[in-house]
Design a binder for these strands. Structure first.
Lengths: 198, 198, 198, 198
DNA sequence: TATTAAGCGAGACGGTACGTCACGTCTTAGG
DNA sequence: CCTAAGACGTGACGTACCGTCTCGCTTAATA
């Protein structure tokens, strides 16, 4: 009776079609005007088919967003600054789009309200942090950063200003800014080694 | 015909009552479950009275939020680090609440969609940036920071990690973290003076 | 203190202006879409000025209607049929308009709901019945109708079909119809004298 | 795409439940105080489910009214007067209620404003006229009425006074009145045969 | 002449209902 | 058991009108 192999198997093409429709529609009408009915119609799918795969609109949007943002690998050039440059480069292309700037705040808000989305959101964030964490740990190993560095803080100092400009202040984010950002943080974290903890 | 003195003047007590009701309700039921009907009922006001003052739910929430966050003054202790400590101190109390952490992302999202909210949002952000900007400019004047510093970037380096931890990563924000944050950024920005731009 | 002569006297031109505006608007937008705001705007009058004179929208509309329909006098040509022709003639012009056909049902409905309107409505109806009643009583006096006639019923037989065609069936009402109507009712009421009550 | 068999079929029990709720509520609170929300709540139905079936409050009320008034059959006793007595008898019970007296004027008014309601209203009236029309035509066939009678007028002479007393004048409608009404109209229409058209 | 009380146009007020929309679920026929 | 289609109950939306209530200003009769 409860044999999962009984009955018609799930159509594997539905999931991707739904995600694609969701991404398209967010780009077209914005995230606030996005409706499940529209996603279903665009994907040529019934609403029940969406809800069989995602528990809520927010869960779907979170997945749509994840599917649109590829996960970067940790580079290993031997130089902290160079590693950071590599890490930041794709950021520029992937997340800077209008769509992503609008989705991110919504995701944060949804994560605070819907526990299920919150869990998925935290996993997503942890995953995104890992490559830079690896880069920073290697830098500590090489002595490029002090052994007692607060790597979480250094990470946030590198990443947060970019997100801040995207989401909060509409500030400029270009190669030059990223270069200066790296310069200041690396210098500050390094000088910490000799002076600040005194 | 359009004489603003004609007709019954708007009840000056309604606006604050509505804002207060909105803030209360956000605290009680969360921002997602907030309804205009509930705000009107709580404020003892008709819905039309709200829409006469705010064009949308988001515009109301933005104002409610602004009214709940006081504007800080620029301190002038003669020391950059001390000025920053003073600036960060109240941040901790005002914005760290659950309510604010949930409202901020919503506001950002709303600002991207609703142009009217966007305008008010940008004003709010500009106003919030000004005190720290003043502090940083005084530091440049005293020679505590290089004359060619990118003050916008320094500002973002100081502010963004706090917001990031509140909104994105649920990271710790306490006096110790703020102390280390100030240390790294000031050190980085200062070392910039002698080394990085060379 | 309560001397009605104290204070600014009512502007005598307001009442007629309001009634005129109401009649105009009913003709333009229909009775269902009529609003007090529109009447006030059209009459160049504040809403309070209307409510100072009429207790409700329905009361106003009843008066507007009464003011648009003049009260007929009882003719006295010496012939029942001729008297009736005279009585019906203006009916055709006054009440047959689209406006009146739409207002009458509303008035009836309002009279069933609002007691104050009901009272005014009953007075209006009684007043409208009086001339024909007089004509019929004179006919009885002349022996044109049996002495034991049910004059209320004869009245209703004469008047009701006209209203019925206006309000219920959208039937034809022209001189020819009225002529035949009078012929049948007078003949029926007269024959009643010699045969029916036997 | 527009296959009516696709999708969940409409719940056949909703329509009658809504009509029943509407009729109940009209009886309880009157037609003016009837709200769609109340009908929906009473029927245990969403408002959208009502609007999926009726385009407006008036259209719903017209149907509710039609469903509450059964359609009479044309009797065939061989006598015109007896046929008319039979036709009038149920009238007394069905339409004389407070509810119907209040609904009818509203329906007339709605029919003048809303074209869709107007169409349904005219169908309803035509259907209600048919039995008496049949009775009158049979009377002509038997020679009980002149061959050149204006049957529409005779019909209106029989029906209109009853409606008039219900709706306009609050006059008495009992068996005695109906008897006299029939007597006068039949006598008048018959005498027409020999005298009036001369 | 100054006071005063009510009427005036304008329009904001607390309510209430409107008709629409989206949510997430449920119910068909068919694959 | 899945699928597309679409109806379902729920509940918020933003609008429109109701009849009432201020405003600042006339407009006479009273003092």
């Amino acid at each position: 009776m409860n044999d999962p192999r009984r009955g018609r198997p799930r159509d594997e093409s539905c999931g991707p079609a739904i995600l694609a429709a969701a991404i398209e529609l967010v780009g077209e009408v914005g995230i606030a005007a996005l409706t499940m009915d529209a996603v279903a119609a665009r994907a040529g799918v019934g609403k029940a088919t969406i809800y069989r795969r995602w528990s809520s609109k927010e869960a779907l949007m979170l997945d749509a967003w994840k599917s649109a943002v590829q996960k970067p690998d940790a580079p290993d050039t031997g130089s902290l600054r160079e590693d950071l440059r590599v890490l930041f480069a794709p950021h520029d292309q992937q997340l800077s789009g209008e769509t992503m700037q609008r989705i991110f705040p919504q995701m944060i808000a949804a994560a605070k309200v819907n526990p299920e989305v919150g869990e998925a959101y935290r996993e997503f964030i942890a995953e995104r942090r890992r490559p830079m964490r690896t880069v920073l740990e290697r830098a500590v190993g090489r002595g490029d950063l002090p052994a007692d560095s607060d790597l979480d803080l250094v990470h946030d100092l590198l990443v947060a200003p970019i997100l801040y400009r995207w989401m909060v202040s509409d500030g400029v984010v270009d190669d030059d800014v990223i270069e200066r950002l790296i310069a200041i943080v690396v210098a500050g974290a390094t000088s910490n080694l000799t002076t600040a903890r005194r």
